[in-house]
């Protein structure tokens, strides 16, 4: 009898624990904060002043590349798309996006390469190369201040959900999930740094730690390394799904490309 009662108490406690676990969830839309709010005033000032923001140098490089003829067709991006300031307005805010030609989502950098290969008949730019980042920054800059508009459609939903699964899954020797820090503990201190919400509003970013511009994929791979997990290789479907989920999670938040981050 006593055992039965103890079992019952143990069962209730287990249920309570499970209840607590399910309670920890997504950040309510009105509580979302740009990661720039967790930076020092100096770093924020660096981002908001275009003459001090090192990411703007990449944007200048990107503008040059936009107008440069390339590939077997000897065409520039501008030859088809015109002035990026009008033609590319709001485009980066919609990526990653479902790309019917591949029957899965692609991120902005991948979309740039699709055009290079198919339309310019040029070689794809390597992942994380200076030129690819420069073009992505330049195109991203045309959406600065616009709300992130990644769409959840019947086609894209399974990929967003796949990204969410990766975000919530524990990984690495430290057995952490992205969500445990960025959903459940944002605003607290990890060592000397405030834990941000991981809202990817400003990619490609200029990261002070890198001393250069880098992509969201690079940042995610860094995070996985810190969890002592095997990072997904560049352009793997899993990494793009994770980007897709994160941009969907930040939907409606203003774009900041090129953001500066510590």
């Amino acid at each position: 009898m006593q055992t039965a009662i103890l079992d019952c108490i143990a069962g209730c406690m287990t249920l309570c624990l499970i209840g607590t676990a399910l309670g920890a969830a997504e950040i309510p839309l009105d509580q979302r904060r740009s990661d720039s709010e967790y930076m020092s005033a100096d770093t924020r000032a660096m981002q908001s002043d275009d003459t001090a923001n090192p990411g703007m140098l990449a944007a200048l490089d990107g503008e040059t590349l936009w107008n440069e003829k390339s590939g077997a067709t000897n065409k520039s991006c501008a030859d088809c798309h015109g002035d990026a300031k009008t033609g590319m307005k709001g485009v980066a805010a919609r990526y990653p996006a479902f790309f019917p030609g591949q029957n899965r989502p692609v991120d902005l950098e991948q979309r740039i390469n699709i055009s290079r290969v198919a339309d310019q008949k040029a070689a794809a730019l390597p992942a994380e190369s200076k030129d690819l980042l420069a073009l992505a920054v330049y195109i991203g800059l045309q959406s600065r201040g616009m709300p992130i508009a990644v769409e959840e459609t019947a086609q894209s939903k399974p990929f967003i959900e796949a990204g969410r699964t990766i975000f919530e899954r524990r990984q690495g020797q430290l057995n952490l999930s992205c969500a445990q820090c960025h959903d459940d503990n944002w605003g607290k201190r990890l060592g000397g740094s405030l834990v941000p919400q991981a809202q990817p509003t400003g990619y490609p970013i200029y990261r002070l730690e890198w001393q250069k511009v880098g992509s969201l994929q690079r940042r995610l791979r860094d995070c996985m390394g810190a969890m002592r997990a095997e990072p997904y290789a560049y352009d793997t479907p899993q990494l793009v799904d994770l980007e897709f989920f994160l941009m969907w999670r930040a939907r409606g938040m203003p774009m900041e490309t090129p953001a500066v981050r510590p």
Partner: peptide
């Protein structure tokens, strides 16, 4: 004690996902 704890397991090698090669099969 708490399956949802954020505290990493410091002396365990099993039941982990995608552990980086350097750390594979080694406890913290």
């Amino acid at each position: 004690l708490n399956p949802n704890t954020i505290m990493p397991p410091f002396y365990r090698v099993g039941g982990l996902t995608r552990v980086a090669t350097t750390y594979r099969d080694k406890p913290v």
